[in-house]
């Protein structure tokens, strides 16, 4: 291993420079006239801009899928098994306008918000412990390794025994589904913060909570955001599944219950309308809320392409 390659000792004569493969004549020339470039900056035409817009392209895919659905359903002509899109939309609009769907959605969103917030708060607590002590990190990695693969729906029976039918059980399973996913990605994010960035944070005299809040969290934000997205998807899925198993809680059930009820009545368009709502809300959160957060943070900072 040579440690002196940056400055080779002058005392030893340098080896002769190898000959160029084919010598060519030197030349110097005046710079090309740059004023002829014409438009240096130009706004793209409308079709170009539309084609560059993610939302537009995705909407096009969506429309295509809907058309296929409609055509297939009309061709199959069996509303009991596979209703058309127009019938589904009709049911959806009907239940939306008479307030049933809004009511059901609200019932679902309440435990969801509680569980999601609770899961994130607990994940913050766990990861703070994990970054501040080695035993904390050991505890968290062991717990995540144990519980992350455990489907939330599998702990539902236990939740029912502990908390009975109702919101607390739902919140419990949602916390379970959010907590481990978010902790895992946050911890991974913290661990991959460049050493130099950590040092320059500590150089400013930052310690403890201020260090975590001002350096680690923003530096690990891409990973944290990814964790929040996964956590959201898990939570939403778990909730709908739990409601399906659960059946009715007190007066009214959530979206899962809406679907379950429709199945019992063999009202397939209503089942579809329920699924449609589930997808719509999932899509809305994913592609509106999270996209906006992404564009305003990690993309603006160049931490994610």
């Amino acid at each position: 291993m040579s440690v002196t390659h940056t400055l080779s000792p002058a005392s030893t004569p340098a080896p002769a420079k190898p000959k160029a493969p084919r010598p060519r004549a030197d030349f110097e020339c005046a710079l090309a006239d740059a004023s002829g470039i014409g438009e240096v900056q130009r706004r793209l035409s409308l079709p170009e801009r539309l084609a560059n817009n993610d939302a537009v392209r995705r909407a096009a895919v969506l429309v295509l899928l809907l058309v296929i659905w409609e055509v297939y359903a009309r061709w199959a002509d069996n509303p009991l098994l596979f209703p058309t899109f127009s019938l589904t939309l009709e049911t959806f609009l009907h239940d939306l306008l008479d307030g049933t769907l809004i009511d059901r959605t609200r019932t679902s969103l309440y435990p969801l918000a509680l569980g999601y917030a609770g899961g994130i708060a607990l994940a913050a607590l766990f990861t703070s412990l994990a970054v501040s002590s080695r035993i904390g990190a050991d505890i968290l990695t062991t717990l995540t390794a144990m519980f992350n693969p455990l489907p939330a729906i599998a702990v539902l029976p236990l939740a029912l025994i502990w908390f009975g039918l109702g919101v607390p059980s739902l919140v419990f399973v949602i916390i379970h589904s959010v907590l481990w996913a978010v902790s895992l990605s946050t911890l991974t994010g913290f661990r991959s913060v460049p050493e130099t960035l950590r040092l320059s944070g500590r150089n400013c005299g930052l310690k403890g909570v201020r260090y975590v809040a001002l350096i680690l969290i923003p530096a690990a934000f891409p990973a944290i955001l990814a964790g929040l997205k996964i956590g959201w998807a898990f939570a939403w899925r778990t909730l709908v599944a739990a409601e399906l198993v659960f059946g009715v809680s007190s007066r009214s059930g959530g979206l899962g219950w809406y679907i379950f009820e429709a199945r019992a009545e063999l009202d397939t368009p209503k089942v579809f309308a329920g699924l449609f709502t589930v997808i719509l809300i999932g899509l809305l959160v994913e592609s509106v809320i999270f996209r906006v957060i992404e564009a305003k943070t990690v993309q603006k900072w160049g931490m994610q392409r």
Binding site: T196, L197, S200, I215, P218, A219, T297, W301, G302, M303
Partner: peptide, 11 residues
Amino acid sequence: VFQEFEQLMPW
């Protein structure tokens, strides 16, 4: 002032 480039906060 560190030798490495990633000492600035990207955010």
